[in-house]
Design a binder for these strands. Structure first.
Length: 411
DNA sequence: CCTCCACCGGAACGTGAGGAGT
DNA sequence: ACTCCTCACGTTCCGGTGGAGG
């Protein structure tokens, strides 16, 4: 192996010219200057929000749609435009964007809101209603319209809807300020768990975002690619292929953008001057593997043990593994890593969960005289999964472990 | 056609952690 | 500080079952 001087290291890498002009454009956080195929939604949203410019309170809005249908982008885009316009005509109007996946408790939400209006609130310690009062005082100090965008609002609801209830009736306590909310959810049914009062107040207006089809995704990609990539680096088939893959994935534009970005990164890494079809396919695979690795890594230990049992059996030459076999191996593993042995009933549930996550395929089959069982087939790449499993400090000691596999009565 | 294997999977219940209310 | 409630995770119990072999 050749030794390079240290400044040669980055020197070389820098000399490979980048294929990108501006990679940020392909990230989900980017809000583009125009949104193809979402004009209808943009207009609806704008129509509802104009009243803010007249100093009135706009209706509360709920936005529904699956991941990657442009909900967040549209909401932010309209929000930016609204603030810009309100500046022009000297109306005090601000739009706040909060992601409830990150800010997932009442307290944090209120603290964040209050902080935005200059109130200094400790991260913890205060009673929740005091924070709420502070927040009200802060905004009511002057005449203004505040629009709060709550992204992934379903995450918040899971932890109780009191905040939403309080926020939705905040206007009755305010003299000067007006508050309205935009909730964004990708779960169509999440209002079912809502207090009826919150439900009706929050959902005064509802906007549904349908998935994009492959054509529409292509348009979006073309628009972004022209900003993100340098001229002529994308092969002809790249965009259609990304779109096709993403369209299969329920029309997820975010996925399409990820594909387009990762394909470019892979091409760059190989010092290619162009991004080609191969890179898109590699990107598709990489994204999928990354997803699986992440899912496996965060599995509870018991599920990891069950999964590892399946892998050991498969390695032993079994093509179709059955529940009974898995359970036998599983018990041995538990003894070895000093974990409690769960009942077979529970383990079948764990296996079903792994099935749902797409890590396994478990099908109930009848073997006639020889009973009825699940046949289990792995649907993940073995080596990378094995590595991830053994990263777990408890499973680590299982490297090289050979289970005693009882002879099959029947083959 | 009946049997009977080796599990499936529903139901009800137990337990402990954590949050809300008081 | 206390109780009460919920929720995730597990267990126990058990009726149910598709089809190869008798």
């Amino acid at each position: 192996m050749e030794n390079k001087s240290l400044d040669g290291l980055f020197e070389d890498l820098l000399q490979n010219e980048s294929l990108f002009k501006n990679k940020e454009v392909l990230r989900p956080s980017y809000t583009p200057a125009s949104l193809p195929h979402r004009t209808e939604q943009v207009n609806t949203l704008a129509t509802i929000l104009v009243s803010a410019l007249r100093g009135d309170t706009p209706s509360n809005i709920l936005i529904y749609g699956k991941t990657g249908t442009g909900k967040t982008a549209v909401a932010r885009y309209v929000g930016i435009e609204l603030e810009r316009k309100s500046d022009d005509i000297s109306i005090d109007c601000s739009v706040l964007y909060l992601n409830c996946e990150v800010i997932d408790t009442q307290y944090r939400l209120l603290a964040n809101l209050a902080k935005h209006f200059g109130e200094d609130i400790p991260m913890t310690g205060w009673p929740t209603d005091q924070v709420f009062t502070k927040f009200k005082e802060a905004i009511d100090s002057k005449k203004q319209v505040i629009i709060i965008i709550l992204d992934e609002i379903d995450k918040l609801v899971k932890k109780g809807d009191d905040v939403l209830y309080n926020l939705s009736r905040i206007n009755t306590d305010l003299k000067n300020a007006k508050v309205s909310m935009i909730g964004i959810s990708n779960d169509l049914k999440f209002t079912e768990f809502l207090d009826p009062r919150v439900k009706s107040s929050l959902g005064e207006e509802e906007i549904i975002f349908p998935p994009y089809d492959a054509e529409q995704i292509s348009d979006i990609l073309r628009q972004r690619a022209s900003i993100a990539y340098k001229e002529e680096v994308l092969d002809e088939m790249v965009i259609p292929l990304c779109s096709a893959f993403a369209a299969q994935e329920h029309g997820d534009a975010r996925r399409a953008l990820d594909l387009l970005r990762v394909a470019g990164e892979l091409a760059e890494r190989e010092n290619e001057a162009n991004v080609g079809e191969v890179h898109v396919r590699m990107a598709q695979e990489k994204i999928e593997i990354d997803r699986i690795v992440e899912v496996v890594r965060t599995l509870p230990t018991q599920s990891k043990l069950a999964l590892y049992s399946v892998m050991l059996l498969r390695n032993n030459g079994h093509r179709n593994v059955t529940t009974g076999e898995v359970y036998n191996v599983y018990r041995q593993l538990c003894v070895n890593v000093d974990m409690d042995i769960l009942t077979q009933r529970r383990v079948t549930d764990l296996i079903s969960e792994l099935d749902m996550l797409g890590i396994l395929n478990a099908v109930v089959v009848s073997k006639g005289r020889y009973g009825r069982t699940k046949e289990i087939v792995l649907s993940v790449p073995i080596e990378s999964t094995r590595r991830v499993l053994l990263e777990d400090y408890r499973l680590g000691m299982l490297a090289g472990f050979k289970p005693v596999i009882t002879a099959q009565m029947h083959l």
